[in-house]
Amino acid sequence: MSAESLIKMANQIGQYFASEPDHAVAVRGVYQHIKSFWTPGMRQQLQGWQQMHPEAVLHPLVREALAQPEGTT
């Protein structure tokens, strides 16, 4: 899958959870959605791309979710 597609999908997830008034719950929601519904390869590709392009336009909730240590719930 292209990086552009992953970014678009990740940003849509971030936008969905942006209406959550509790910021921590929103970040956990993004994290859990990506962990539950994306393949490990998709997650790794997005994380690798974000590390190589830190200036990339990712929704702030997505950036925070990607920074969560593995196993966070």
Rank of each mutant, 00 (worst) to 15 (best):
A3N: 14
L58G: 05
L58S: 06
I7W: 01
T72F: 13
M42W: 09
Q45H: 12
P54H: 12
T72G: 01
V27S: 05
L6M: 11
E55P: 04
A18W: 08
M9D: 12
T72D: 04
T72H: 07
A65N: 05
P40G: 05
V57C: 02
W49G: 01
E55K: 14
V25K: 12
Q51C: 00
Q45T: 13
N11R: 10
A26K: 08
Q50K: 04
S5G: 00
Q51P: 00
P40K: 08
Q15L: 14
G48L: 02
S5I: 01
V62Y: 06
V57S: 13
A56D: 07
I34D: 02
V62S: 05
Q50F: 08
Q68R: 14
T72M: 07
E64R: 04
A26T: 08
P40H: 08
E20Y: 13
P40Y: 09
Q12E: 13
I7F: 02
L58N: 05
K35T: 10
L46E: 03
L66I: 10
Y16F: 14
E20P: 00
A26P: 11
K35H: 07
M9L: 13
I34Y: 04
L6F: 03
G14Y: 06
L46C: 06
Q45D: 13
K8L: 15
L66W: 04
E64S: 10
Y16R: 14
A56I: 06
M42V: 00
A67W: 11
E70G: 10
G41P: 00
A10C: 08
S36W: 07
R63T: 07
S19N: 06
T73V: 10
P69D: 10
E4I: 00
G29W: 05
A24P: 00
M52E: 14
I13P: 01
P69L: 11
G29C: 05
Q45C: 03
L58T: 08
Q47I: 01
F37A: 02
P60G: 11
A18R: 12
S19L: 03
A56Y: 01
S2Y: 09
